[in-house]
Design a protein around this nucleic acid. Structure first.
Lengths: 328, 328
DNA sequence: TTGTAAGCGTTATCAC
DNA sequence: GTGATAACGCTTACAA
């Protein structure tokens, strides 16, 4: 009890009868004389010594901490991402410092700059602030949005995913397609979901409607949209591609309330690959983001101290998964 | 560019033409002379100085970091908890260091002890290791499991929740009840869900069956159980209380595959209050844990430096929410 | 190969 | 009220 004054290297050195520097070497795996090695290791065990990471960080001007900035953890895509990132970091003996912004520009900026007083090894962030100031000298990786030259951006192949969605709907016999989206008004990588979708539609010679609303807009705007395209209990579209699984989920519920059946009357494909309870069934047919691979890549980049000509944008391939809202 | 050698207090002191100690005082809100105050603040702005938290932590032997240990972030209950905890900590100017264990006893222990070399302000954990060694001198809060005397445990009112589930099923006309559970073989607070359920059944004079299997057991054990109680397309039970929403969700799917309708033939209540996409509809009728309040309480306790006679167990009230798997 | 000593950026204790 | 100065625990030249 009275002891717990925290054991330091000095204590270990005294206990082992060696100099402070020798202990440090042993702790850091730098070779020392066999007998010293043993003596120090025994003393460490005996005393239960553990290195003080703050002191080390201060001295080395670098902690083994990576900062993660996300909007929240209740959205399954973000929580899955956080899960994968944290695990991948642990695997490499790094720690995860987590910040949640709920998309507040101010918080995004504040947490971003926090790293400066923190000596973190890297930053992995998913932000929306268009004027985000990035701390210099800290490897930074952005997810789904380009933060400017020199900052790596990791994303899924949004364009390819959009194409894939169109292809699948067409394969399943859809003739009248529409793309629905609610999202940041600022340009980011996820815009390409629409571009890819339109491209595939154009290539196939099939017309397609786009209904995109800004983030502030209430969901009811989509219900109005659907109703305005409902004639005699029949929707003008038989295939919908929604920019996220969440939107797909809501749209499906709206359609069902209007008396339409999914997938019999209307087929829907979402984007993300979200699953019930995180690892059970897909909520809907979806374009699956390779979350684990994205996390691994983010960590790779965030730990790459030397900015050795990192590509500005890295896109990872997506896949399609049937989840009940399509007829395949 | 060439400057970014990180600005220190010393730089600020020189810039402002005052002593180091004066800068420290300003930074920490300790009163100094009016003119000094201004000079220092201006210098700080001009130089863009930010306090180095590692140095402060080292000097004060205490960082403003709270360690959170959870099994994972894909399970909605855990991710919601993490979300609330992180937000609550931020609100009080603390940072969140996140560790995920996937219930590995070794990792639980390793992360628990990590705090010793970290000078964290507190630990909030949800663990299963029965022999977990707790670092001394760091305020520790356990969720859903008592870690022994002196360690606060925060949980929802599991017993009350069990009672409530039974009451709701009975109110809805159920006559033949059963409790289903898969969970840690080690005793923890969530065991009381069963106890409360049984108690309410007993009080009401209604028989109830309990089917509890250990964590390792494959889910198919429950399917076998259900099948063994299925006679002529009719289940021996018309009301099920599942220890978690996830189990309720799986059971519902199994029943539907067997040709039974929920809630017409069998009503189901889960526990947790999990929602689709984190904030949409409930997956099923459920006993809702007050996650936000629990998080707040955990943070309260984890930051309470003085162990001023903290109650060992704190239970927060639950509520019932209808989610389609019952007839109310 | 080992020991010594100078910091890393803060805070806190004192003389002034 | 202000300003030197000594730690905090560790790493790393550099000297022995």
């Amino acid at each position: 009890m009275a002891d717990s004054k925290s054991i330091t290297m000095k204590d270990v050195a005294r206990e082992a009868g060696v100099a402070l520097g020798t202990v440090s070497k042993v702790v850091n795996g730098i070779p020392v004389g066999k007998s010293y090695q043993r003596a120090v290791e025994e003393a460490i065990d005996r005393l239960g010594y553990r290195v003080n990471r703050q002191a080390r960080a201060l001295r080395c001007m670098k902690s083994n901490i990576v900062e993660i900035i996300l909007p929240n953890l209740y959205n399954p895509f973000f929580s899955r991402l956080a899960d994968c990132l944290c695990r991948e970091l642990s695997r490499r003996s790094y720690q995860t410092l987590l910040f949640l912004t709920e998309c507040s520009f101010e918080l995004e900026q504040a947490y971003m700059l926090m790293s400066e007083q923190q000596m973190v090894s890297g930053i992995i962030c998913l932000t929306y602030n268009p004027n985000l100031r990035i701390p210099k000298g800290i490897p930074t990786v952005s997810i789904d949005r380009s933060l400017g030259p020199g900052i790596a951006c990791v994303a899924s192949d949004n364009f390819g995913g959009g194409c894939l969605a169109a292809q699948k709907l067409l394969e399943n016999g859809c003739k009248r397609l529409a793309f629905l989206r609610t999202g940041a008004s600022l340009p980011n990588e996820t815009d390409k979901r629409r571009d890819g979708f339109i491209r595939a539609c154009t290539d196939a010679g099939v017309p397609c409607h786009c209904e995109c609303v800004n983030d502030g807009t209430p969901y009811s705007a989509f219900e109005d949209f659907l109703r305005s395209h409902l004639h005699d209990g029949r929707l003008d579209f038989d295939g919908l591609f929604c920019a996220t699984d969440l939107l797909a989920y809501k749209i499906q519920r709206s359609l069902e309330q209007m008396g339409l059946r999914v997938p019999e009357d209307v087929q829907i494909i979402g984007y993300d690959g979200a699953r019930c309870f995180g690892d059970q069934e897909y909520y809907c047919s979806t374009i699956v983001q390779p979350t684990e691979e994205m996390a691994r890549l983010c960590v790779d980049l965030a730990l790459q101290s030397s900015a050795q000509s990192i590509p500005c944008l890295l896109q990872l391939p997506v896949s399609y998964a049937s989840g009940g809202s399509t007829r395949d």
